Simulated assay, not measured.
Amino acid sequence: MNLLKKITKFPTLYGILSVIFMWQLLSLALQSNVLPTPFKAITSFITLFPTILYKHILVSIYRIALALSISLLLGISLGMACGLYPTLDKLLSPITYILYPLPKVAFLPLFMIFMGIGDASKVTLMVSIIIFQVLIAVRDGIKEIPLELFQSMKTLGLTPIQLYKHLVVPAMLPKLFSAIRISLGICISALFFAENFATSYGIGYLIMNAWSMVEYPKMFAGIIGLSLLGLILFKLVDLLETKCCPWLKK
């Protein structure tokens, strides 16, 4: 019971140490250069980070941040419009349900033809993934608001801005943060794939380039960087949710 309390007190540290422990066991069992020990990979990460690794990570962060900003701006706007206006929802929902399940990665060649091989096509790929998650989450969060609450707010004489601030936004925020978490995982995977084409910067490029050059410690240094990037982004989302949704605290 005491051990369980300590684990729950430092869950991130527990998760990291558990992964390193399993990684070490697997590396000892396989005895292959393809899977270096955690010590070699972490040493490689520490050595490469100040020289080249940080540049690749910063480029990937830039692409993710830009895609997320565009997706939130468009997705929240469309989601709120669909949630508040049923007629608009009837027009957009059929299109959303057709486009949302499609594997967006398949459209990367098309994006590259029309938008070039630079950041635009990679960012567009991520936007095409995130925007539908955000739109549906925001729309569903607003639709779950009982009609009686809208009527009560109007009876109290609240202005449209106050209605959004005290009812609409708090109702859709928890679902929005859940959508962002799910989207980030898929988004990072899509970015890894996109950064293997016509680019010389990005964490995906570094990993696959190291693999092709048979530099496995460098490859795992990139994987560690990608993992830390995902962990930091998830923790930031958790922190924002705690600040924006204090009523969710247990």
Rank of each mutant, 00 (worst) to 15 (best):
K9C: 10
P94L: 00
I224P: 03
C82G: 08
G225Q: 02
F150T: 02
D238V: 15
L25C: 09
G202Y: 00
P246Q: 08
H56G: 10
R139A: 05
G116E: 07
S178P: 00
S27N: 02
I57K: 10
T96L: 13
I182Q: 15
F132R: 04
L30C: 12
P101M: 01
S32D: 10
L25P: 01
K9R: 14
S121A: 15
P50S: 09
Y62Q: 14
V127F: 13
F21T: 12
S128G: 00
S189H: 03
I182Y: 13
G116N: 08
G225N: 01
Y14E: 04
I57A: 14
I223Q: 02
P246F: 02
L72I: 13
S152K: 07
E215S: 08
L226S: 05
C187I: 04
I186C: 03
A81K: 02
L66E: 06
K165H: 13
L13V: 13
I113S: 11
F10P: 00
Q24I: 00
Q151P: 01
L173I: 06
I130F: 01
I207F: 03
L88K: 04
K250A: 03
L73P: 09
K6G: 14
L102V: 15
K55E: 15
S27Y: 00
L236E: 09
I16K: 03
T199R: 05
L84E: 03
M219W: 06
L102I: 15
K6W: 11
P50E: 10
C82T: 11
F193W: 07
L229A: 05
F45Y: 12
L28I: 14
L66G: 01
V59A: 06
F193Y: 14
C245I: 13
P94M: 01
I57L: 15
N196C: 10
Y205W: 15
F132M: 08
S227H: 05
L191R: 03
L184W: 02
K165F: 11
A41N: 05
V34H: 07
L58W: 14
P36E: 03
G15S: 12
K5E: 13
V214K: 07
K5S: 11
A179D: 00
K218Y: 11
Q31P: 03
E215R: 14
C244F: 15
T124R: 02
G222Q: 11
F193K: 05
K143T: 04
Y164V: 07
S69W: 03
R181Y: 09
T43Y: 10
S32P: 07
P94Q: 00
L53P: 02
N33L: 03
M1I: 09
L240K: 04
S60E: 07
R181F: 10
L163E: 06
S69K: 03
F49S: 02
L35S: 02
L13P: 09
Y205G: 03
P146F: 05
I113R: 12
F114K: 02
K40L: 14
S189V: 06
M208W: 05
I186Y: 05
V59Q: 01
G141Y: 04
M153W: 12
L17G: 07
F234P: 01
I188V: 13
I161P: 07
V214F: 13
F220L: 00
L13R: 04
I186L: 09
S128C: 06
E241N: 12
V127I: 12
G230F: 11
R181E: 11
K90T: 06
L125K: 04
T242N: 05
F197E: 01
L240V: 11
L228I: 13
T124Q: 03
S93M: 08
I52K: 14
P174R: 05
I203P: 06
